[in-house]
Every structure is written in C-alpha cells, then in structure tokens.
Design a protein around this nucleic acid. Structure first.
Length: 268
DNA sequence: ATGGTAGGTACCCTA
C-alpha cells in the first residue's frame, strides 16, 4: 500500500496535475491539504473514471480544507474540529488494506501556518498553531491504543530537525522552525511514539525539503526549502515500512503548488 | 532590514 500527502493550494485549480501525479505513481490513498473549496464545489469530474472512487472531505470557502481520495473503501470516516474552530483542518478514515488483516486509520492534518510573529502573546495565529498541536498531543493517546495501526499525514507547517531547513541558524526565529514549535511537535510525536517515516529512511544529517516559497526567484537554484510535510506511523507499522519518497518534480511544473507530494510505501 | 509570489475573493485575507 502506498499513501501520499500533498498540500495542493487549491484543488480546483490544480485537479489536472493531481490527476497526472495519481496516474504516474498510483498511490492507494492521497491526502490533500489546502483544497480551498466548499464540498459542493469539489472537482469530482476530474477523478471520474479513475480508481479513486472513495472520497472523504471537509472544505470551506477560500481557505484551508482537507480531502482523502482512495482506491480502498472506508469502513469509517470522521471530521474533527480542533482548537475551538471549525476550519476544516483534520479528517480521518479507517480502511482495511489487503494483505494486512487489520484496520488502519489515516489522519489527514493541516496544522495552522501560524502567521509571521513567533510569539503566542502577540500573535493570535501563532497561539492557535501551538494550541492545535497541544490538542493533538492530548487527543491521539486518548482515541487510539498504542498498538493500533495509525497513520498521521499532512502539512504540519513545522520543520523539526536542523536539516529539515536550508539554514537552521537563519530560521531559528522564523515561524515553522522556532524552538517552541519544534518542542510542541516533538511532544506530539512522543505521545504516540510516532515514527517519522522520512527520517526512518534518510539520516538526520541529510537535507530534506517538501516546500519551497513562491517568493524566491529561482526555487531550484537557491534551494531554500523546508520539510513541512510529514507521514508518521505508529510503531506497530514499523516492520511494514518499505520506502519514503519526496517527489520534487511537480514544484517545477506549470502553476505549481509551493508544496510537493510525498509517498510512504508499506509491505502489504 | 526589507520585500519578494500565489490563490481566492471581493477590494483584503492567508500562506
């Protein structure tokens, strides 16, 4: 089974490149963030005639929005509201992959970006971001047993490790890589003993990015990226991990998202 | 230290 995650920054505008990616890589499940559309305007037509018959989503006008497209039917689907808002940032599905024999629950998360000022007293958005992560730290252990097969994916908007950003030193005061955010994300990770599947395969001293700003003149040449997108699994799935890949090509396509898709592959 | 780009929406917000 292959699970993909991609912050698409408008699924209506970029449905054609989503389709290209699905055709090329054939993930069983694709989790999208920043779909930026109410459910009634989701571009269903683009995915007609594909194997992705099962779609769960929660969207709103203009901002945020998450969706899960799947070849495998869902046995359960949920919408979660976080940090006292109903802003379409967390959905989940449960499915039963062939060859595994147990249900697997997949959480699709779009953690708030957090604005520019990394001070929760001065910046409401930063406070909301930290509250959101704190709530997840508390919520996951209460709603899943430690031996359950659970996957958490999405745009976490935090690059936790030194080599998850182009310059650790220059980004210490930049939202996405500040010590307080890293601390909060690490607490969330410890609460379920989540395995960061990218770093399961790639040593921590190697640079890994999944996002490049729209504002840089030449994203590829300057390569000032950050690893904001993650696929985490509970320890029971560790023995089934087969690969993790970051697909940078779509960043160079016409009218790209500023994030690129990632895929974790399992042995079942 | 500053401002740079993109998308959705409605003349500005969020990233």
């Amino acid at each position: 089974m292959k699970i993909a995650s991609w912050n698409i920054n408008s699924v209506r505008l970029r449905a054609p490149i989503v389709l290209d990616f699905l055709n090329s890589h054939q993930p069983d499940v694709l989790c999208l963030q920043e779909t930026k559309t109410p459910d009634e305007h989701f571009p269903h037509d683009a995915f007609k005639g594909t194997p992705y018959k099962h779609i769960h989503m929660h969207g709103m006008k203009g901002y945020n929005g998450v969706a899960i497209l799947s070849k495998i039917p869902f046995t359960k689907q949920d919408i979660h509201h976080r940090a006292c808002k109903e802003d379409c940032r967390h959905i989940a599905v449960t499915l039963e992959p062939k060859g595994y024999g147990k249900p697997v629950t997949i959480h699709n998360l779009y953690i708030p970006a957090g604005g520019d000022e990394p001070d929760r007293a001065l910046n409401e958005k930063f406070d909301h971001k930290l509250n959101f992560v704190e709530e997840l730290t508390d919520w996951f252990p209460k709603h899943h047993k430690k031996d359950e097969a659970v996957i958490a994916v999405g745009d976490f908007n935090i690059a936790p490790l030194e080599h998850d950003v182009w310059s650790h030193k220059q980004l210490l005061k930049v939202v996405s890589h500040t010590p307080i955010e890293v601390e909060k994300l690490t607490e969330m990770q410890k609460a379920m003993n989540w395995i960061d599947t990218a770093r399961h395969f790639v040593p921590e001293d190697q640079k890994l990015y999944s996002w490049w700003s729209y504002r840089s003149k030449d994203w590829l040449a300057s390569n000032r990226g950050r690893r904001l997108d993650h696929i985490w699994v509970t320890p029971i799935l560790k023995e089934n991990l087969k690969s993790h890949n970051i697909y940078t090509d779509p960043r160079g396509w016409d009218r790209p998202s500023d994030h690129v898709p990632i895929i974790t592959e399992f042995s079942f």
